Simulated assay, not measured.
Amino acid sequence: MEYSKNYTAAGEHIDVQGIMDGLYYPFYMEECRHAYIKEVLGFDFVQQAENGVFMVLSEYSIKFIRSLKKDDNFDVTCAVFTDPSGLPKLHFKQSILKNGKIMASALFTGTCIPATGGRPYLPEELKANFTDASVLEIK
């Protein structure tokens, strides 16, 4: 299932060239991804942290295709994929679209770790909410 949220490029995120600074693209993607994780996957970051479970990123890559400008209205999408090697990782494919055109695309990879330290894992209650997710295809 692909999830989407709508945003407007904030003036304070615009650089001297009149385009959105590259550091804010992953910021908007994070906002959307966190909403997706809570609303669709049922993982509440605050509650889980209080229970000793931290969800963390292990890596990400982003491709910038077109620039956003001040007050541009855009959508951020998010979809989850499981790991092709069966590792305890979730992969989130995300895009930023303006008027149906891709402005940026990214792949974020995350996992959970115990707050006290230890090996990465995915809690069973989280796994139950993405049983129909596709396996990430590596190119």
Rank of each mutant, 00 (worst) to 15 (best):
F45H: 04
A49L: 01
Q47R: 10
Y25L: 09
Q48K: 15
N51R: 15
M55V: 09
G22S: 06
C32A: 08
F43H: 02
M20A: 13
C32R: 00
K70I: 09
F64D: 09
Q47C: 07
G42R: 03
V40F: 09
R33T: 00
N51F: 05
H34A: 05
I62D: 10
G52W: 11
Q48W: 07
V56N: 01
L57G: 15
V40D: 01
V56F: 01
V46P: 04
M20G: 03
K69S: 14
V46G: 11
K70S: 10
E39D: 12
K63M: 14
L68R: 05
F64V: 08
V53Y: 00
E30V: 14
Q47P: 01
Q47V: 08
Q48S: 14
S67I: 06
K70Q: 10
N51K: 15
C32P: 00
I19N: 04
L68N: 08
F43L: 00
L23V: 14
I65H: 01
I62N: 09
S67W: 10
E30L: 12
N51P: 06
E30M: 15
V53D: 03
G18N: 06
P26M: 13
L57M: 15
L23H: 09
V40E: 09
I65S: 04
N51C: 11
N51Q: 15
F64R: 10
D44G: 05
Y36Q: 03
V46Q: 13
I37A: 06
V56E: 01
R33K: 05
S67D: 11
M20W: 05
